[in-house]
Design a binder for these strands. Structure first.
Lengths: 125, 125
DNA sequence: TAATATATTAGCTATTTAGCTAAGTACTAG
DNA sequence: CTAGTACTTAGCTAAATAGCTAATATATTA
């Protein structure tokens, strides 16, 4: 379960346009590092994802992108694994699943409470 | 539909602990201003919600709370209505509903893509 | 009409954030 | 073992943020 501090970290991570776009890139782009394309005969998804591949999609320096990725990692929005030279990045879908559940619960509880409220009103008439 | 800029505003609004707690207060506490308790014979929900009632729950100045509420309003996370002297606040459940849908779509698409990936693998064998 | 209650605006400060470049670490390949 | 690749760390600056108090606006009530 995500506690409050964790949720706040997630919202903070997603509250900056650059990080939001990195997040989007990682969740919709795939999981393979475009740098690997340089290896002969290897067919890979050309969209994502190691740090420098993500950086290719932005007009910011590599250290800037690296810092953003670190923040997304600490918010547990992405997963990161170092393999040799490279850092491979993939979505942390479980966090997003939990977040979806949290918001859905909020909506459901709200609807139930509203129903309760009106039921009560009817009973009184 | 929430566009990117709107989503970023929402995440930013919820990325500060004070605002997150105000948000929580408003969504779980009810819709009636505790200041109204001062009116004789009026039974009201004692938890929320006009600006000074919200402020009662925090050790921050009224202007600070007012500014936070403004930011939550601009993120369309709450609805605000001035009645006479007071500003009444209530949850904007539609925004939360849309947010829940966004995250759920992300999860569903991810699951579908993963299924696609494995189906493909099987077909090739 | 004056006093009170509710909320916002203005103007301030300390802290945090997001960007940068330069330098350092760690691995790979020639 | 040297050169190159991938990434992170350190240290910097400008801008944004979160808090405050004082002043202002507006509505209510005595």
């Amino acid at each position: 379960m995500l506690d409050m501090e964790q949720k706040i970290k997630i919202f903070k991570a997603l509250s900056n346009k650059t990080r939001f776009l990195i997040f989007k890139n990682i969740f919709t782009g795939g999981y393979t590092c475009s740098v690997d394309k340089k290896q002969a005969g290897v067919e890979v998804n050309p969209i994502a994802t190691c740090v420098s591949t993500v950086a290719e999609h932005f007009n910011f320096s590599l250290p800037t992108i690296s810092a953003h990725i670190k923040e997304l990692k600490e918010a547990q929005v992405i997963l990161v694994e170092k393999k040799g030279n490279k850092v491979y990045i993939e979505p942390n879908i479980e966090t997003i699943r939990e977040l979806a559940e949290c918001f859905q619960t909020l909506v459901t509880n709200f609807d139930n409470n509203r129903e309760l409220f009106f039921t009560d009103t009817v009973a009184v008439k």
